[in-house]
Design a protein around this nucleic acid. Structure first.
Lengths: 240, 240
DNA sequence: CCCGTTTCTGTACGGCGCTCGTTTTCCGCG
DNA sequence: CGCGGAAAACGAGCGCCGTACAGAAACGGG
C-alpha cells in the first residue's frame, strides 16, 4: 500500500529475473557446443562465478532447467516459422508451405542442438510433461500445418481417398482447436496435416543427426525437391 | 599341438566372447528400460557381479561399447527390414515399399531405445565414426531404398522433373555401389531414394520421440496412409 | 533499524568414466 | 606334473556430476 503501490516487479524480482536469464543463456551456450548433456549446473555456476548449489534457488532441478529451455527454444522456433509463413501472401498456399518447411530446416541448421533438444532425446530419463509451453508449441506446429493444409484442401481433398480417419482418432483438445479454427474441415485434413508434419521433419532429422551428410553433398537441394513434391501431392501448382 | 590341435578359438577366446556377449546383453537390457544414458559400465559390472574396471578388458571405453551396440542394433534392424521386403514378390514394387516402411516402424516400436540409439542422440558427445558397420548399415538402408525406387523408376521417372541432381551431389562410394547395382539408373533416382528414406522416417521419429502420441491415437493408420501416398507418388498402383 | 525472507556458500553423499598398480587366474609348454 | 607369463579381475583414487542441507550473508519492508 505504499506510494508506489504495486511497482509490480520490485527490485528483487528484477534481479531474480536477470539471474534466471543469465543461467538460461549460459546453459544455451554450453548446449551449443557440447550438446544437451554438456549442460551441467556446476559448469553454469562456475561460468557465472557462483557456488554450484546456488542455482537451486532458481531451478528446482536440472530437469526443470532443461524443461524451461525446451519451452523457450520450441517457442522461438515456432515464432520464426510462423513469421516466415506470414511473409507470403495468405492466398499463396504453395509458397506458404515451402516457406514453412524451409524455415524449419534453416532454423534447425542454425540451432542443431536446439533442434535435438526439442525433437530428440533431450536428456537422461527426461519425461515430457503432459502440458506446458512445449506441448503448446507442438500444437502450434500441428495447427499451423493444419492451416496450410486447409488452404490447399479444396485441391487436396480428392487425392486423400482410401483412408478413413475419424475425429475420434485425434486428441480432443487438438480436435477442438482445429474445429474452432476451421469448422468445415474434415478429420481427413487433420490427418493430412500430421502427415505433412512428418514429411517436413524426416529429411531434416536425418540431416541434423548426420545420416544424410555421408550420402549427399546437397541436402538443401534434396529438401527443396521434397517440398516441391509435397506441394504437388497436395494438388497445388508449383511455386515460382 | 595337443590332440585337439587347432581348436582355433581356444577355450580362453570362447570365454572372452561369452563375457563380451553378456556385457552387450546387459547393456541392451539397461538401455531397454532407461535409455542409452542408463548404460553405465559400473551398472553392467554390478549386474554381472564383477568389478567396474574389469569391463575395460573387453571395451576400451564406454563409447566403444556404445558403438558396438549401435553396429549390432543397426544391423539387426536392416536384417529384419530386408527380410520383410523379400517376403514380397520381387515384381510387386508397391508391396515391397509398403513392407519396408512398415517393417521399420514395427521394429522401431518394438525397440524404441534401439531406434533412438541409431537415429537419435546416442550418447553425450558421441561422434559417429567415418566407417564401420553402422555407416555400412546406413548404406544398406539407402541402397535398399534405391532398389525399391529402381523397381518403380519407369513409373516414377516422369514425375521427377524439375530437380536437377548430379552424380557429383552424392558420396562417391555410394554412387559407385549404386551404379554397380543399377547401371541404368540416373542420379535423380538416387535423390528420390534419399527422399523416400526421409519420408519413411519422418512419422516414425515423431512417434518414437512422443510428438505424435499427444495428437493422434492412430499412428499406424497415419503411417499407412503416408506409405500409400508415397507409393502413389511413385506412380505405382496402390497395393491390394 | 531490525526481522524475516531470499540468496548464497561450503560440505557431504552417492554415482559416473576412467587410470593404474597389484593380485589372481589359468592356459600352454617343457 | 609344475611353472612362467599372459590375460583378467580387483580396488583405490581422480575429477566430474546432481542433489541435499545447514549455516552465513544480503537485503527489503515495516
Amino acid at each position: 500500500m505504499s506510494r508506489v503501490d504495486e511497482q509490480v516487479p520490485g527490485r528483487r524480482a528484477r534481479l531474480r529475473a536477470q539471474t534466471t536469464a543469465e543461467i538460461k543463456n549460459v546453459a544455451l551456450k554450453l548446449m551449443a557446443d557440447g550438446g544437451a548433456d554438456a549442460i551441467s549446473l556446476r559448469a553454469i555456476a562456475r561460468e557465472m562465478g557462483m557456488s554450484g548449489s546456488a542455482i537451486y534457488s532458481y531451478f528446482e532441478t536440472r530437469d526443470a532447467l532443461i524443461t524451461t529451455l525446451i519451452n523457450d527454444v520450441y517457442t522461438s522456433l515456432m515464432d520464426q516459422v510462423e513469421t516466415a509463413r506470414d511473409a507470403c501472401r495468405p492466398d499463396d498456399a504453395a509458397n506458404r508451405i515451402l516457406a514453412w518447411g524451409q524455415a524449419v530446416r534453416e532454423w534447425a541448421l542454425a540451432n542443431p542442438q536446439g533442434f535435438r533438444l526439442i525433437y530428440g532425446d533431450p536428456v537422461a530419463g527426461y519425461q515430457a510433461p503432459e502440458s506446458g509451453p512445449a506441448p503448446e508449441a507442438a500444437k502450434r506446429a500441428c495447427l499451423g500445418l493444419t492451416g496450410l493444409v486447409a488452404a490447399a484442401w479444396s485441391h487436396a481433398q480428392s487425392l486423400q481417398a482410401g483412408s478413413d480417419h475419424q475425429w475420434s482418432d485425434f486428441a480432443p483438445t487438438l480436435v477442438a482447436t482445429v474445429r474452432d479454427a476451421f469448422p468445415d474441415l474434415p478429420a481427413a485434413a487433420l490427418a493430412l496435416a500430421l502427415r505433412v508434419w512428418g514429411r517436413m521433419q524426416g529429411l531434416i532429422v536425418l540431416e541434423i543427426y548426420g545420416h544424410l551428410g555421408p550420402q549427399t553433398r546437397e541436402p538443401a537441394k534434396l529438401y527443396h525437391a521434397e517440398m516441391i513434391d509435397l506441394i504437388r501431392s497436395l494438388g497445388l501448382a508449383q511455386p515460382e
